[in-house]
């Protein structure tokens, strides 16, 4: 599913939750929806899932304005999520699956597949309140994907999972992506953004302040700092185009970071260093999404 929002604006009593937000999520990609707390991500997701309506602006699905039936083709895992504590796991999953448009038989069949895949079939008749948080999250994840929707929206999907289960969820997401599903991932975990997302949009103070391919964004934010690992301990260096940012010993090596003037070619720096020192490793320091996030939000 190809999703697009154009100039979506939403005003609550005393604050503007979204201000002309336009994003584009290509089909079959993972889209990272980033932003500090209270930036308006949840409001945008609620508008996409038709839980609330925008004051102005529109949501397009596959190029046409979204309509109420589209919710059956969306799977949404909210950040704040719960289950009916007194219900049995199976009953609850069946209920949610049927609410998402599956018939009883379909729901039963799909649930068995997913319960086996997540190795939780034995919980079917347990009450939800007996489950740990992680187990509940699994049930919620299943209920999000059970109806095989083309658009999946995960809001902090990894919270409450141990690393093993978080990895499993990550792999499930990649599997879904490989099946051609479109995924929106909203998270504060920037490592998973780098690992999973093709594109991102960063929302800050109700506006999109950054949008594009993850790698492009990181490159755009490069600081022209290069890292060298040298065998030499006696590093001395003086050059008008290059400045030494830091110098630290690393075991028997020395790690140095050098910033070059943007207009100077990278090769020039490399040549200079390689000619004068014994280089073990070398790369350009590309900022992590975490750095990009902090830098952008702090501005």
């Amino acid at each position: 599913m190809y999703l697009q929002t154009t100039n979506v604006t939403k005003q609550y009593a005393n604050h503007l939750a979204l201000n002309k937000v336009s994003i584009e999520v290509p089909k079959g990609t993972v889209f990272g929806l980033l932003g500090p707390n209270g930036a308006g991500k949840t409001t945008l997701i609620r508008i996409i899932t038709r839980i609330t309506a925008p004051d102005s602006g529109e949501v397009f699905i596959d190029g046409r304005p979204s309509k109420s039936d589209d919710v059956f083709n969306i799977g949404y895992l909210p950040e704040e999520r719960g289950l009916y504590k007194k219900m049995k796991v199976g009953e609850q999953a069946m209920y949610l699956a049927q609410l998402r448009g599956l018939s009883k038989a379909e729901a039963q069949r799909e649930l068995m597949i997913w319960f086996r895949r997540f190795d939780i079939a034995s919980w079917y008749n347990r009450k939800v309140e007996e489950l740990s948080k992680g187990m509940q999250q699994k049930v919620q994840f299943i209920s999000t994907v059970i109806h095989n929707p083309d658009l999946l929206i995960f809001d902090e999907p990894f919270s409450g999972f141990d690393p093993v289960n978080a990895e499993m969820i990550k792999n499930e997401m990649l599997r879904l992506k490989a099946e051609g599903k479109t995924i929106i991932l909203s998270t504060h975990n920037m490592e998973s953004v780098e690992a999973l997302c093709d594109n991102i949009a960063l929302i800050h103070r109700s506006q999109v302040v950054l949008q594009g391919k993850v790698f492009d964004i990181r490159r755009e934010h490069r600081t022209n700092i290069f890292r060298f690992r040298l065998r030499n301990n006696d590093f001395l260096f003086e050059h008008p185009s290059f400045t030494l940012v830091s110098k630290e010993p690393y075991h028997e090596f020395t790690d140095i970071r050098i910033r070059k003037q943007p207009e100077v070619a990278t090769n020039e720096l490399a040549k200079l260093i390689f000619d004068n020192f014994d280089v073990v490793a070398y790369d350009e320091e590309i900022p992590t999404m975490n750095d990009v996030f902090i830098e952008t939000v702090k501005q």
Partner: peptide, 17 residues
């Protein structure tokens, strides 16, 4: 109960409030 347990967040994505 639905609001406190946040079930409602899950519910509203498939049921109109």
């Amino acid at each position: 109960e639905e609001k406190k347990s946040r079930v409602v967040e899950v519910m509203v994505s498939s049921v109109k409030p």
